[in-house]
Design a binder for these strands. Structure first.
Lengths: 222, 222
DNA sequence: ACCTGAACACCGTTCAAGT
DNA sequence: ACCTGAACACCGTTCAAGT
């Protein structure tokens, strides 16, 4: 990370914009209008510069999005008091990550990779690992357990926000509705049985229930 | 769904291309060069037509991708013999869906919504629901259980394929590597302990272990 | 060292017209 | 009914030049 406020020996033209300003402006656009509207050109005009000037402060758009996510995590994830009991600490840490991500729908499209967790998020990862190890798992199995929780958490966010976006986009009957309308109750009886309740049932927020089930399963026999 | 092979009364110009041809050509492009290279213009030239002709057969690019996924599911998901024992049937059905999706990395970017499961995939959903109900869950809880499994499965695919793509893209040190390089062992001891093994550990395919833990948790006390 | 202008090589989609 | 040409309103990124 560069030191933007460090005294410069000015061996060249003084900078007009900073990496911080680029990120802050990008955040404003994303918060106000969504991640789709964040383009390098738009960002440049917003900042009162040209698209090319941006490339002097971030490598490309991908890096900009990573920096943006980091910036978001740093301000959204404040460290709460976590329960002392390991299982409950895991639940609370995972739920905190989930809550922060869920409050920020654009994040789902950006960050599904495993190597973009910001430094501020790592403290939560640490708590989860610690809870798993304290519950009797080896460090290796604890990493696998954490990953399982992360897959579940990321999947929940991505699936739910994509579904919500799609619902908002077209107001006609969804693809699912058309498929569910002509289900054969003989061939798929269980689905037919719940077909008309599918939308409300799947819209329910059952993240915590699923998380507890998952953690119960991970800790079973330990 | 239209009947493309039905006899026509030809009250107009005869079609030169069909929806099936559009989808088949799109599939060829995606299989050969990845989903990023599938553009309406590219597809039009490949098919020997113009971009606008495509819009007569699919509503827009989004619908094309949905149709493409459906087409893929229809040919990738053949129904295997599933175990009679409910828990093992759930595992096998979820694993079959996971295997089909994992073999098709482009799918992750396209299909993370909940209402795009094709008709052919529904049979697997049915098996999971049935296994959960047979294990003692109410139909409502079975739907929630299925969703939890789907979140986990979709998350695993999305996270792993995005990570793989990112690894392939830039050959420099990843963001995670830079962050992990200067972890404070006093503040984040568990992470520091596994920091150098993180990459291989998280690269391991532990989908089935996680799935079994999740299902154990869902079925606990039933 | 930092910024600019102009260009490259594209996108998805709409509109009005043709056959 | 189906297809075409031309256009609209954009993209991310590179290159060579300016200060």
């Amino acid at each position: 990370m560069p030191q933007p406020s460090a005294p410069r020996k000015t061996p060249g033209r003084p900078p007009r914009i900073s990496r911080e300003e680029v990120i802050a402006t990008a955040r404003r656009i994303v918060d106000a209008e969504g991640v789709d509207r964040l383009t390098m050109r738009r960002l440049a005009t917003e900042i009162g510069s040209t698209p090319m000037a941006l490339y002097h402060h971030v490598r490309n758009k991908e890096e900009l999005l990573v920096l943006l996510l980091d910036d978001y995590a740093a301000r959204a994830l404040h460290r709460p008091e976590l329960p002392a009991q390991p299982r409950e600490r895991i639940v609370a840490a995972a739920a905190a990550i989930h809550e922060a991500l869920a409050a920020c729908p654009w994040i789902a499209e950006v960050l599904t990779a495993d190597d973009l967790m910001s430094t501020s998020a790592l403290w939560f990862v640490e708590q989860i690992l610690d809870g798993l190890v304290e519950s009797g798992l080896t460090p290796e199995r604890a990493v696998h357990g954490y990953r399982t929780i992360w897959y579940y958490t990321a999947g929940e966010i991505v699936v739910r926000t994509t579904a919500a976006r799609r619902r908002a986009d077209d107001d006609g009957p969804t693809y699912r509705e058309r498929v569910f309308a002509d289900l054969d109750p003989n061939e798929l009886p269980r689905l037919a049985q719940v077909a008309d309740r599918w939308a409300p049932l799947t819209a329910e927020n059952t993240y915590l229930d699923g998380l507890r089930a998952l953690i119960d399963g991970l800790l079973a026999a330990h």
